[in-house]
Design a protein around this nucleic acid. Structure first.
Length: 896
RNA sequence: GGGCGCGUAACUCAGCGGUUUAGAGUGCUUCCCUUACAAGGAAGAGGUCAGAGGUUCAAAUCCUCUCGCGCCCACCA
């Protein structure tokens, strides 16, 4: 047993403790002993990232679950790792080489990738180190990275299988294109945001008309928000039921500024109520128009380069950026008198989730996963309860997405990532640019897979050497969706996979339900044979105090490392857990961490008191209930109640509730009452026993939330059966140890003490004056046996405790449950001095009551106000009348 | 256009599978440096639970509507 320092200093504790755990290999899981298993996998943070509050919350929760289960005797595995974050990482490295004046094309693919790997080696472990500071008890020996050999194998295997099953295809579709990143994005990667745009009404001439004299004979007006795309128009569409436009049947329009002839088509999908009811059809730059082009066999004219500048098909506008082009086209339309009007128009526009550039819907050849077949199963397991969401409201969000699933665009025009393992034989295909190849099934000729992702030399069909690999890489989520089983060795049939898959719980934020959770469930069912987890706990988003998402660009971040530096990791964890109830968003400000810091300090000091006074020679490993006092029984019962509550709160993922129970027990029961009472003990040995017993118990209860301080104190505990609290046995809630009678008796006792203290404070009686109290009670024995506590803690003597007590002269009274406490104070109070104050108080109450009475006798009010308000006024009246009566009664009694 | 969340004490929030007197932290008032802790202790003030209907013996809690605030999804160009 060693002494605890006077001052609680997290900095002196946390790093040292963590290092000790690591040294003892306490995080490692192998299940050599064949215990029950509890597995969770970390939502892999972005390898370029640094720890932010979202991570802190997310990992605190996971660590609580893991530590709790570990103490409950499970073999726990928490798999850590990072994902390669294709676009984000590539952006970071591009920025870094830009400082040397280089672009990625200057280096070439191989050299550039070398740079990225170098970057990853130097900075990629930042977040891992930070997670350790938080206290996360991951099995670091198993740290995984999505571009590791093993995980890459899994990606290739999955690609091959999907390809073989005809669940992959490559073709021309409208996708979300980020002109800045120069790549396609999935639908989920385009974040819709309201933008103040404009709706332009533009005249299109009817072929054969002389000018713009008569509407619909000479011209038609269309509405658009992106006038620059008119360069790619190939038709005009109106609704067949829209009688206004019936006359257009069979006519052709002329595209302004370009002169191309546009067929006028009729389609139900056109909304007659929007704009003019006539739609310009731009199949290469709009998803709706693209579908129209399929239905009506329209040509598709893609007028943009990959940076969203206008290409050669844009004629004289070629080379202009999309927004410059918009300006120029509007000018030209204006000049030509074709711009009818411009209306302000608020609409939702997609933005790149990595760089926030406005996304351009653009026709492009990309790889897709057919999602419907995967979604059917993934929806089923949630519908039948195999996989449960906490809180349950997310079920609906998830299912809604599953039921409206669209194919997943998985190819990205970047270099950092898993390169698509498809090779093209230029001889067989007679294609120069392999990007232009469409792939619709597994048996396409001249197209072949390298199933392990390895480099191929020649075409297996014709033996030709002019072969080329698909230049694109896969979406990062195409590797992340395999995470729960790829990290355990899949596709190899490993022992780990057998033992640890499927996992128990997934803890994550709502932002990635579609990106990650939904797709993991799909992949788990498809390749892992089972849903990858049973429970999905969705926690809230960490926001600043005004409700904005924390982000570097807004400058409103609270850095968890700063907080750890200020108050310690334990305080950070406790605070953030306390204020996060059931998946509700967290509005954070720095002062929120004070409660955690204060709590840690409180525990430290309480432990110091207990350990300072303990005599190791008389200490026993357990307590003897027969030698226990009422307060002993009370604290033991109360402790077991707390264990029960904490267990059920944790089982339901109610972390803040669990934290609250522990806080309340430690602070307001153990410290405020039991520690104070322990100072009055006659049986020091027994009291110390209980003190230490309860301290050990609460340290265990608290350990999942505050791992460092509990371990540090544990290491100072005498006679602890377990070397590490981290590996110790979780307290078992024992119903038999809960003595309800003791609980209620102690409540009464505390009530009496509070009543006496209250009277002393109210009547301004000096703290050194010993009050003489008489108690009317049915349980005189209870009071007399425990009078010591009342007398010491309330500074009084209990003169009488009997079933029938006449009210002593000059005494105030207080009711506690079924007993009544009389406190004669008349002689102690300078009544003349107090009289004015009490009279004022009485006056206040009387005024208030008169107010209520006036209100209640006011006919208007009684007629007008609803019954429950009147009822409330009445009950207020009753309550205050009672108070007034008691006060008057007491005053009178004191005056004698 | 659909879906979801929130509106409770001065502030930040719990409670919302109906039941004693609606809780916590912070702040505020009074007293106390009592040898674990002033980052503390004791006592206290403070609430038409957004508004309106309804169900019920009983509603902050369940249902409907209204008003504010926030988020997510969606091809109205």
């Amino acid at each position: 047993m060693k002494e605890l320092p006077n001052k609680y200093d997290p900095k002196a504790i946390e790093e040292r403790i963590y290092a000790a755990w690591e040294k003892e290999k306490l995080f490692h899981a192998d299940n050599a002993s064949g215990k029950k298993v509890y597995t969770i996998v970390i939502p892999p943070p972005n390898v370029t990232g640094a720890l932010h509050m979202g991570h802190a919350l997310n990992n605190s929760i996971q660590d609580i679950l893991i530590r709790w289960k570990r103490m409950q005797g499970f073999e726990t595995l928490w798999v850590p790792g990072t994902d390669h974050a294709g676009i984000a990482t590539q952006n970071v490295v591009e920025k870094s080489i830009a400082k040397e004046g280089l672009k990625r094309d200057d280096l070439g693919r191989e050299k550039f990738l070398e740079k990225v790997w170098q970057w990853k080696e130097s900075y990629g472990s930042t977040i891992i180190k930070q997670l350790k500071k938080l206290g996360s008890s991951c099995d670091w020996d198993r740290t995984r990275f999505t571009m590791d050999e093993g995980l890459s194998k899994a990606v290739m295997e999955v690609f091959s299988r999907l390809y073989a099953e005809n669940l992959l295809y490559k073709g021309d579709y409208i996708i979300n294109w980020c002109p800045r990143c120069g790549t396609a994005l999935s639908d989920e990667e385009a974040e819709h945001e309201e933008v103040n745009g404009a709706l332009y009404h533009i005249k299109y001439q009817i072929k054969g008309s002389a000018g713009f004299e008569k509407y619909l004979e000479d011209y038609v007006v269309v509405a658009t928000t992106r006038p620059e795309t008119l360069l790619g128009d190939t038709a005009i569409a109106v609704n067949p039921k829209d009688e206004r436009y019936a006359a257009l049947n069979g006519k052709t329009a002329i595209l302004p500024l370009v002169g191309r002839e546009l067929k006028i088509i009729f389609d139900e999908d056109v909304d007659p109520l929007f704009g003019t009811g006539a739609l310009k059809v731009t199949p290469a730059h709009d998803p709706v128009d693209f579908l129209l082009s399929i239905k009506h066999g329209l040509p598709r004219v893609n007028v943009m380069e990959s940076d969203a500048s206008i290409n050669a098909l844009g004629g004289k506008y070629a080379g202009l950026d999309r927004f410059e082009c918009r300006k120029k086209i509007l000018e030209d339309l204006e000049t030509a008198g074709l711009l009818v009007e411009k209306k302000d128009h608020l609409h939702a526009v997609g933005h790149c989730y990595r760089c926030h550039t406005m996304v351009e819907p653009r026709l492009s050849k990309q790889w897709f996963v057919k999602m419907k077949p995967l979604a059917i199963e993934a929806a089923r397991v949630v519908e039948d309860g195999t996989v449960k969401f906490y809180p349950s409201r997310w079920t609906k969000v998830y299912l809604n997405w599953m039921h409206n699933i669209k194919d997943w665009c998985i190819s990205r025009q970047i270099w950092w990532g898993h390169r698509i393992p498809v090779w093209y034989c230029k001889d067989c295909l007679k294609y120069k640019n392999v990007r232009d190849v469409s792939v619709s099934g597994p048996k396409a000729e001249g197209i072949f897979l390298s199933t392990g992702g390895e480099k191929l030399e020649k075409c297996p069909r014709c033996g030709g050497k002019d072969i080329e690999q698909d230049p694109d890489v896969l979406d990062t989520w195409f590797s992340s969706w395999l995470w729960p089983f790829s990290t355990l060795g899949w596709p190899k049939k490993t022992k780990d996979l057998e033992v640890f898959y499927p996992t128990e719980a997934l803890v994550t934020a709502q932002e990635i339900i579609f990106f990650w959770v939904a797709r993991m469930i799909m992949a788990g069912l498809k390749f892992g044979k089972e849903a990858p987890f049973k429970d999905v706990y969705i926690h809230g988003t960490v926001r600043d105090s005004s409700g904005k998402k924390m982000s570097k660009s807004l400058g409103n971040v609270i850095d968890p490392l700063d907080i750890i530096n200020d108050v310690g990791s334990d305080a950070l964890r406790f605070s953030i857990i306390s204020i996060t109830s059931q998946g509700q968003d967290v509005f954070l400000s720095k002062d929120k961490f004070e409660s955690g810091r204060n709590f840690a300090n409180k525990i430290w000091n309480a432990a110091r008191y207990v350990l300072l006074n303990v005599d190791e020679k008389t200490l026993k490993p357990d307590y003897d209930i027969s030698s226990c006092t009422l307060p002993d029984k009370w604290i033991i019962s109360s402790f077991h109640e707390t264990v029960k509550r904490v267990d059920s709160s944790l089982a339901e993922y109610r972390f803040s509730e669990a934290a609250g129970h522990i806080y309340d027990f430690i602070w307001h029961k153990y410290c405020d009452w039991y520690l104070e009472i322990s100072k009055l003990s006659d049986d020091k040995a027994n009291t110390q026993n209980i003190l230490v017993y309860i301290l050990g118990g609460v340290l265990k209860l608290l350990h999942p939330i505050m791992p460092f301080i509990t371990e540090e104190i544990w290491q100072s505990m005498p006679a602890r059966p377990d070397r590490w609290i981290m590996k110790s046995a979780w307290p078992a809630a024992d119903e038999k140890a809960i003595d309800r009678q003791a609980l209620s008796n102690m409540e009464n006792l505390m009530g009496v003490i509070t009543a006496v203290r209250n009277a002393r404070a109210f009547w301004n009686i000096n703290i050194n004056t010993i009050l003489e109290v008489e108690i009317k009670t049915d349980q005189p024995g209870l009071i007399f046996d425990n009078r010591k506590y009342i007398e010491k803690l309330a500074r009084c003597t209990v003169v009488k405790a009997e079933p029938l007590v006449a009210r002593p002269a000059n005494s105030v009274s207080a009711i506690v449950d079924k007993l009544q406490v009389f406190i004669p104070i008349g002689k102690l109070v300078d009544i003349n001095e107090e009289k004015a104050r009490i009279s004022k108080k009485i006056q206040e109450l009387e005024n208030y009551l008169t107010g209520i009475a006036r209100k209640l006798s006011d006919e208007n009010f009684v007629k007008r106000a609803p019954a429950d308000i009147i009822e409330k006024e009445r009950s207020k009246q009753g309550k205050f009348s009672e108070q007034l009566a008691a006060l008057k009664d007491n005053l009178e009694a004191v005056l004698g």
